[in-house]
Amino acid sequence: MKKFALFILFFFCKSLFCQEYHFDGFLEYKNSISGNNSLYFYNSNNKVYYLNVYKKFETIYGGIRDTENKILHEYGVTNKVNSIKFNYLFSRKLKLKKNSRKYFYDITEKKIDSSKTEVIILVYNDKKKKKSSSKIELIIDNSELIANENILFSFTDGIVNDVNSKITPGIPISIKVDFPTGLKCYYTLIKKEKTNTILTVDNVKIKNF
């Protein structure tokens, strides 16, 4: 999944018994270490859900994380020349952050210019903060003031999960992550566009997860 084609998708309910997700913007990031690209779809007026498209073991997947309904919808994704096709796989209960591991943070911000802010997040496993376990470095574009908590949660594998009120709003254009395992990831924003994308899930399928 070296490159995604530009696309607009419309999936409509065949009946009234379905859950509908609308996305009006998407971001495409490139991981300079693996060479893979990832997509992040969002609704600028509703931050309770978002859609990730990513590659894992040569297969492309999509996942809608819905915190309001506490559910995660998984899709198989086919990347074609001018479009991407989503094939529903299954749904499962979502483990919210209150049930996840608790982290503690030291956050510093520095203005680069009128539209960009540099943010450094040191992550600790305990509140004594003796030794950081992870480090996240961000450059945030403040020209579009969207909440970025879900973006950071997604690209740090849940390490950054409770800092939205402490970080300046905006779109991360650079995300560097040093994980506790020693793994390093460096994501760069390569595309930001408006879209009108709708995905739906049949409620019958949701009840069977």
Rank of each mutant, 00 (worst) to 15 (best):
S114W: 03
N79M: 09
K70R: 07
G62A: 01
L96H: 01
I136L: 04
K97V: 06
S100F: 07
S115C: 04
T59P: 05
I139E: 01
L96K: 01
R101Q: 13
E68C: 06
K135V: 12
I112A: 08
K111L: 03
I112F: 05
S114E: 11
L96F: 02
E58K: 14
A147Q: 10
G63L: 14
D126A: 11
I71L: 02
T59V: 15
L138W: 04
T67D: 08
I60D: 07
K127S: 14
K130H: 14
K128T: 12
K110I: 04
L89D: 04
T67I: 10
L94K: 00
S83Y: 11
T67R: 07
V119R: 01
K85Y: 15
L94R: 02
K70F: 10
N125R: 10
D141Q: 05
L138T: 03
G76Y: 15
Y88H: 05
E144H: 05
I71E: 01
I112N: 00
Y75R: 03
K98C: 10
T108D: 12
G76R: 15
K128F: 10
R101S: 10
L122M: 12
T108R: 11
V77R: 03
D113G: 05
V119E: 00
L89Y: 06
N87S: 15
K97R: 10
